Simulated assay, not measured.
Amino acid sequence: MNNKIAKQWKLWISVTIISAVLFTISSTAISIYLYGNNSYNYKADAAIVLGAAVWGEKPSPVFRERINHAINLYKNGNVKKIIFTGGVGEINEPAEAVVGQRYAIARGVKASDILIETQSRTTSENLQNALAVVGTNQKLTKFLIVSDPLHLKRAVLMARNLGMDAYPSPTPTTRYRSFSSQMEFLGRETYFYFVYLVFKI
């Protein structure tokens, strides 16, 4: 009888733990999805465009949408400066930030209103290096973080933990449109969100 009760007790504990874990994961995933898909209309001193892949001399579709959104923010008066981030992904390719800079200048953004950093390879490095580029410029204190919607909850948390007055500005268009691609991206972001909470990387 005691063994039977002990087994039932262990089973109940196991079910409770598994349920709690699943609830935590699912609720976090939902919060990431809702956070990035809200409508935001903030104004700030600068937009920080998180890097993404380039294809030769051109931005990949993902990066292009981020750049386009930053350009629209700039032209609509939501930001005064654009900070492009991202280093070299493949040998013989220009840095992501350089590609973003060229693309934006070709579309009417003043070169003097663009800052770049060309060493970062991760979201955390994007933000740290952007902050270093800003330095002690007292005119740049409030930032819009520009990226794909599902990327923003983690990115903004990182930025605020670096001491930035940062706010989300999700791209209104994204390459991740199909249900399967969104779920894949959401699963990956949920994982990295927990990794960041635990390890701060």
Rank of each mutant, 00 (worst) to 15 (best):
N2Q: 00
N3Y: 03
K4S: 10
I5S: 00
A6R: 13
K10C: 14
L11K: 14
L11S: 12
W12E: 09
I13P: 11
V15D: 01
V15N: 02
T16G: 15
T16Y: 08
I17A: 09
I17G: 01
S19E: 02
A20T: 07
A20R: 00
A20I: 12
F23G: 12
T24Y: 08
S26N: 10
S27H: 14
T28H: 03
I30S: 09
I30C: 05
S31D: 11
Y33M: 03
G36Q: 08
N41T: 12
Y42H: 14
K43C: 06
A44I: 10
D45T: 08
D45A: 06
A46N: 04
A47E: 08
I48W: 05
V49H: 06
A52Q: 02
V54L: 02
W55T: 14
G56C: 10
E57Y: 11
P59R: 07
S60H: 11
S60C: 11
P61I: 10
P61C: 07
V62L: 14
F63N: 03
E65V: 14
R66P: 07
R66H: 05
I67T: 13
I67L: 10
A70R: 05
N72Q: 15
L73G: 06
K75F: 15
G77T: 08
K81V: 13
I82Y: 03
I82F: 07
F84P: 07
G86E: 05
G86T: 06
G87E: 07
G87M: 04
V88A: 01
V88K: 14
G89I: 07
E90G: 00
E90T: 12
N92Y: 13
P94F: 10
P94T: 13
E96W: 09
A97T: 10
V98G: 02
V99E: 06
Y103I: 14
A104P: 09
I105Q: 12
I105H: 03
V109R: 03
S112H: 03
D113Y: 02
I114A: 11
L115R: 12
T118L: 06
T118H: 10
R121I: 06
T123Q: 06
S124F: 07
N126T: 06
A130G: 11
V133M: 12
V134I: 15
G135T: 08
N137C: 00
Q138E: 09
K139M: 12
K142L: 07
F143W: 02
F143T: 01
L144K: 05
L144C: 09
V146H: 04
V146N: 05
V146D: 05
P149F: 04
H151M: 02
L152Q: 03
K153C: 02
A155H: 04
L157F: 13
R160W: 06
R160P: 03
N161K: 15
M164F: 11
A166H: 09
A166V: 12
Y167D: 11
P170N: 12
P172C: 13
P172W: 08
T173K: 11
T173P: 00
R175N: 12
R175V: 15
Y176A: 04
S180T: 15
E184G: 13
F185C: 01
L186A: 03
L186W: 03
R188W: 05
T190E: 01
T190G: 02
T190Y: 01
V198Q: 05
I201P: 00
